[in-house]
Simulated scan of single mutants.
Amino acid sequence: MSIGNSREDDRLSVGQALQQARIHAGLSVDEVSQTTRVRVPLVRAIEQDDFSRCGGDVYARGHIRALARAVGLDPAGLVARYDEEHGGRPEPTPAAPLFEAERISSEPRRPNWTAAMVAAIVVVVGFVGFTLFTGGGSGDGGTVAEEAPEKTPAATPPTTGKPAAPEPEPTGSAIAAAPADKVTVKLSADDGQSWISARDHNGRLIHEGVLRQGDSRTFTDSKRIDLVLGNAGAVQLFVNGKEVEEVGENGQVQRLSYTKGDPEAG
Rank of each mutant, 00 (worst) to 15 (best):
M1P: 12
N5D: 13
S6W: 05
D9E: 14
D9R: 08
Q19W: 08
Q20R: 13
D30S: 11
V32N: 06
S33K: 01
T35E: 00
T36G: 01
R44T: 12
A45W: 04
E47Q: 14
Q48F: 12
V58E: 09
R61F: 11
H63D: 02
A70L: 11
A76V: 06
L78E: 06
L78P: 00
G88A: 07
P97Q: 00
P97C: 00
A101C: 05
E102M: 09
E107T: 13
R110W: 04
P111M: 10
V123G: 02
G126Y: 12
F127R: 10
G129Q: 14
G129L: 12
F130P: 00
T131D: 10
T131I: 09
F133P: 02
G139L: 07
T143R: 07
V144N: 05
A145M: 15
A145G: 15
P149D: 14
K151E: 10
T152S: 09
P153E: 15
A155E: 14
P157Q: 11
P157F: 14
P158W: 11
P170E: 00
T171E: 05
S173T: 11
A174R: 10
A174Y: 08
A178K: 01
A178S: 10
D181P: 03
V183P: 04
V183S: 02
L187W: 07
S188V: 10
W195G: 13
S197I: 15
D200L: 08
I206W: 00
E208D: 11
E208K: 09
G209A: 06
L211S: 10
D215I: 01
S222A: 08
L227N: 02
L229G: 06
N231I: 10
A232H: 01
V239H: 08
N240C: 11
Q252H: 09
L256W: 00
S257R: 06
G261E: 15
P263M: 05
A265F: 05
G266D: 09
